[in-house]
Amino acid sequence: SHFELRVGTITLHFDNISEELAEELEKLAKNGVHADEIRRWWEEWLK
């Protein structure tokens, strides 16, 4: 499923992401983690 995450002024787009993972990314964003860090985390997870 597709997921969009708003982090400050940036909107990150994720394809084929589980609800659980989407929730984890939302938690990171709410805790003030920068969009670049979240994207890096996601790319690492995909490997």
Rank of each mutant, 00 (worst) to 15 (best):
V33Y: 15
E23A: 14
E20W: 07
T11G: 01
N31V: 08
T11Y: 05
W45Y: 15
L5C: 01
D36Q: 07
W45C: 14
R39Q: 14
K27T: 12
I17K: 00
H13G: 03
A35H: 07
L28I: 05
A35I: 13
E19H: 13
W41Y: 14
E44D: 12
E19Q: 14
E37W: 06
A22F: 14
I38Q: 01
R39P: 01
E44A: 10
D15W: 15
I10Y: 03
S18T: 14
I10H: 05
L12S: 00
A35S: 05
L46R: 06
A35P: 13
E19R: 14
E44T: 10
E19T: 13
E23V: 12
S18I: 03
L28R: 04
E43R: 04
K27W: 10
T9G: 15
A29P: 02
W41N: 05
S1T: 13
L46P: 04
L5F: 04
I38T: 02
E19P: 15
L5N: 01
E4W: 06
E24L: 11
V7F: 05
F14T: 00
W42H: 12
H13M: 10
R40V: 07
L25W: 02
W42C: 07
N16W: 06
D15T: 09
E4I: 07
E20V: 11
A22H: 05
E20K: 12
W45E: 05
E20L: 06
K47V: 15
W41I: 13
E44H: 10
I10L: 13
E23T: 12
F3E: 02
N31W: 07
V7M: 04
H13P: 01
D36P: 05
E24D: 07
K27E: 10
V33I: 11
L28W: 09
K47W: 11
E20Q: 10
R40G: 08
K47A: 13
T11D: 03
F14E: 00
T11S: 06
L25R: 00
S18E: 03
V33Q: 08
N16S: 07
N31G: 11
E20F: 07
L5W: 02
V33M: 15
E4Y: 04
G8N: 04
L5K: 00
E37Q: 11
L12V: 05
I10F: 04
E26D: 12
L21Q: 10
K30P: 02
T9F: 11
S18Y: 03
A35V: 14
D36R: 04
S18P: 10
E43F: 09
A22S: 06
F14Q: 00
E24A: 12
I10P: 00
L28P: 00
E44F: 06
N16E: 05
G8Y: 05
F3S: 01
H34V: 09
V33H: 13
R6T: 15
N16L: 05
W41D: 02
D36H: 10
K27F: 10
E19Y: 11
I10S: 07
L25A: 04
T11K: 04
H13C: 06
I17N: 01
G32A: 08
W41P: 00
S18L: 03
A35N: 03
K47F: 10
D36Y: 05
E23F: 13
F14I: 03
T9M: 11
L46C: 08
S18A: 05
E24M: 12
